[in-house]
């Protein structure tokens, strides 16, 4: 290990990510509150949830724009380019490391450096959530806000029903991603070093 600390998270990534995490958490909480609404035990009053969810959803879209344009215009985008040939075997190697090698103290198969910010599994989940799941949530979310754009029947069922299904399905997966994401962030030089990195910008190698 030649470099101890690498500057990997520029200010805009850190700010984007901070807002993203706060907004996502708010959306998840208000979303669950609406989905499981019960007049007897309101987690948050339904109409309050609706307003918060709508406003925060719009803010998330604006924030996503920062991410999207940032990755388009700066070198940060290159970390998100999936290289497909051999991807599967790299994923398996990383998976093996997380389920066995890590416990035995073996070195990571794809150590983090300035050319590779994410290991293959990390990269796939980040690309999947940022370029598939979050866009699905945003598009279906806007559609639900303007329900008149949704065809009243789509294929075999109500268009509204289907749109909502996709919205909730993708949101559920992002919620799962968040659990796993936060846990995996504790796998660093120390359990807190990745979180520190997301604050000061420096990744500590181990």
């Amino acid at each position: 290990m030649t470099e101890e600390k690498i500057y990997l998270y520029p200010v805009w990534v850190r700010l984007w990510h901070l807002f993203n995490a706060i907004l996502c958490l708010t959306l998840i909480i208000t979303g669950i509150s609406m989905q499981f609404s019960n007049p007897k035990f309101p987690l948050i009053a339904f109409n309050v949830s609706v307003s918060i969810h709508n406003i925060v959803g719009i803010l998330l879209c604006l924030n996503y724009l920062i991410f999207f344009l940032g990755n388009l215009g700066t070198r940060n985008g290159r970390y998100y380019k999936l290289i497909f040939p051999g991807l599967f075997s790299r994923l398996m190697a990383q998976f093996r490391y997380y389920t066995r090698g890590l416990f035995k103290g073996e070195p990571a198969p794809y150590p983090i450096n300035s050319e590779r910010k994410f290991n293959p599994l990390q990269q796939l989940t980040y690309v999947g959530s940022m370029y598939i799941l979050v866009p699905v949530i945003m598009v279906t979310g806007w559609a639900l806000m303007y329900p008149e754009v949704i065809p009243s029947r789509f294929l075999w069922t109500s268009g509204l029903h289907l749109t909502d299904l996709f919205h909730i399905l993708a949101a559920f997966m992002v919620s799962l991603f968040m659990f796993i994401h936060v846990y995996f962030c504790t796998i660093g030089k120390t359990p807190f070093s990745n979180f520190k990195g997301m604050i000061n910008g420096y990744h500590e190698t181990h």
Binding site: M34, Q35, F36, S37, F46, W156, T157, S158, L160, H161, D164, F172, L176
Partner: peptide, 23 residues
């Protein structure tokens, strides 16, 4: 499956709920 109506919060599907909790 064929359901004309969708009301947020009212169409909770019991099995989907259980499944999501299990996951």
């Amino acid at each position: 499956i064929v359901n004309d109506s969708y009301v947020i919060g009212a169409n909770r599907n019991y099995y989907l709920n259980v499944l999501s909790l299990i996951i």
